[in-house]
Design a protein around this nucleic acid. Structure first.
Length: 454
RNA sequence: GGAGGGAUGGCCGAGUGGACGAAGGCAACGGUCUUGAAAACCGUAGUGGGCUUAUGCUCACCGGGGGUUCGAAUCCCUCUCCCUCCGCCA
């Protein structure tokens, strides 16, 4: 979510930024609703002030009334209370009259407050709804471009392009031949876009998960987290997945649970509604989770192999930082992911996203792509974003600066480290040998127990 | 799944519908005292919104949402979470 003050003060600038994303947002309606909201607020608060004042007055009268009535009772019983029963009776009556009159008046104020509140509620609801649909604003450093075809491709790094003295096969042939991927039975169980890993295939994935977690915790200082795989819908709003990406989410039919499309959703909300100390920042988490996505938007695309499924596994890096350090953190996270690529002997490249391909929540984003020799494609194996305060506002995550105690929103960053099926594709296809066997990368051998899958 | 009990400021913990943004304690911060520290004593302190900015004024917030009332931390409804007992269970 954006700062409403920014939209209020520079609506045209905000619109221009969003135009760079190739997106639109109801900025004019937001500005109008915001103005109306403050207008109503002024009125309703003045009314409330009046009501508070009168109510306090009534309260005092009621207190005195109680005392006087008690006195009256005693006077009527013949006790001396300083005044005659008749005098007291008259006073009680007059006070009662005043109180009743004030009550009537205040009741009317209350009715007007109720009316204004109702209008306020409607305005705020629409305002809030619209705010949730406004995308994040790109960082100044992001190159302007209309779509992904303009992304800035880095030079290939890591291992040299694999050479073969035979025709390299795609993983959808190699996998079944080796008995490590079973497409038919995956479809039998769950339908299209599901597959089964078997034997060394399953072991390879487990080895990769273990290796990623070990590497990031031991070498990069992340704390491992095992989150729930299904979380409440409110967490999806916090992570900026809802309302916009509703169609891509699996949900429970009876309860307000939704299945993670990425660990980012859970990790963003770990510190939801908290105030962190600056001394605790940065907080660095790494989590393995399966990811569930409907993939409605990409129906018919990437249907072969294990590149795009409704369920896949991923190890995700996540950081909470101060605003001053988030861009340095972004570069570090890219390096963290590249370190893994290097260790696995992948051929990879860094892609800098242009404004038109930033997506909804990121202010700046890099992808890492790995070369897969069999299908002859660069596969997206990581996506690393700085969301600045966009998610922090939605999930209400603040920190107390060491100097000058005013609370501020943290910056949040997320990045794959890495996404498994595509890393497996690269390994399987690049490391294949003429006989169909696959050489296991050195760093995985302790986890696999073998040098070659055959 | 059944029965009951809870949720109050950074933490603990009071709070018969009116003086309560909320006692008291602890922790924190500032000060006095001290060679220094501790102790003691005095004082300051929440978050968010709106208006105005020189100081300021005001509204909301006692788990979330709704209701009753002139007025709700307090009464009613509802949701969430926590605890105890019973049942079931990887």
């Amino acid at each position: 979510m954006l700062d409403i003050n920014l939209i209020r003060e520079k609506p045209e600038w905000v619109k221009a930024q969003i135009a760079k994303l190739n997106d639109t947002a109801p900025i004019d309606e937001i500005v109008a609703d915001d103005a109306r909201r403050r207008e109503i607020l002024g009125e309703v608060e003045e009314l409330r002030r009046q009501r508070n004042e009168t109510s306090k007055q009534i309260g005092q009268w009621m207190g005195r009334l109680k005392k006087m009535e008690a006195d009256l009772k005693r006077a009527e019983a013949g006790q001396d209370v300083g005044q005659s029963a008749d005098q007291l009776r008259a006073q009680v009556q007059s006070l009662q009259f005043n109180a009743d009159e004030a009550k009537d008046e205040t009741r009317e104020i209350g009715e007007r407050i109720t009316e204004l509140d109702e209008e306020l509620r409607q305005v705020e609801e629409r305002l809030q709804h619209n705010m949730l649909w406004v995308p994040n604003i790109p960082d100044e450093s992001v190159p302007v471009g209309p779509d992904d075809s303009h992304n800035i491709l880095g030079d290939p790094q890591g291992a040299p392009e694999p050479q073969f003295d035979f025709e390299p096969k795609p993983h959808w042939d190699l996998g079944p031949e080796l008995g490590i991927i079973d497409f038919e039975r995956g479809v039998k169980l769950s339908g299209s876009r599901f597959y089964l890993l078997k034997g060394w295939g399953s072991r390879l994935q487990r080895a990769l998960i273990q290796f990623f977690l070990d590497y990031h915790t031991e070498k990069h200082g992340y704390t491992e987290v095992y989150p729930p795989f299904m979380v409440r819908s409110e967490m999806f709003v916090g992570a900026a997945q809802l309302p916009k990406f509703k169609d891509n989410i699996y949900r429970d039919a009876e309860e307000d649970f939704m299945w993670l499309g990425t660990a980012e959703i859970a990790l963003t909300n770990v510190h939801r509604d908290e105030v962190l100390d600056e001394a605790d920042l940065p907080i660095k988490y790494v989590a393995y989770t399966p990811c569930f996505r409907r993939e409605k938007m990409s129906a018919g695309r990437d249907v072969r192999g294990i590149k795009r499924g409704h369920q896949f596994d991923k190890v995700e890096m996540y950081r909470f930082t101060t605003p001053e350090t988030s861009y340095q953190a972004l570069e570090e996270m890219v390096q963290d992911a590249m370190d893994i690529c290097e260790a696995l002997g992948l051929r990879y490249r860094k892609v800098e996203m242009v404004t038109g391909d930033l997506g909804f929540a990121a202010a700046k984003k890099y992808d890492l792509e790995a070369w897969a020799a069999g299908c002859g494609e660069w596969l997206e194996i990581s996506s690393i974003s700085n969301c600045e305060t966009f998610q922090a506002r939605r999930a209400n995550i603040k920190y107390r600066p060491a100097e000058n105690g005013r609370l501020q929103y943290v910056h949040t960053l997320n990045g794959s480290g890495l996404a498994l099926p595509r890393v497996m594709i690269a390994i399987i296809e690049n490391n294949q040998q003429a006989d169909g066997s696959i050489v296991v990368p050195k760093v995985l051998r302790p986890y696999m127990g073998v040098d070659v899958i055959r």
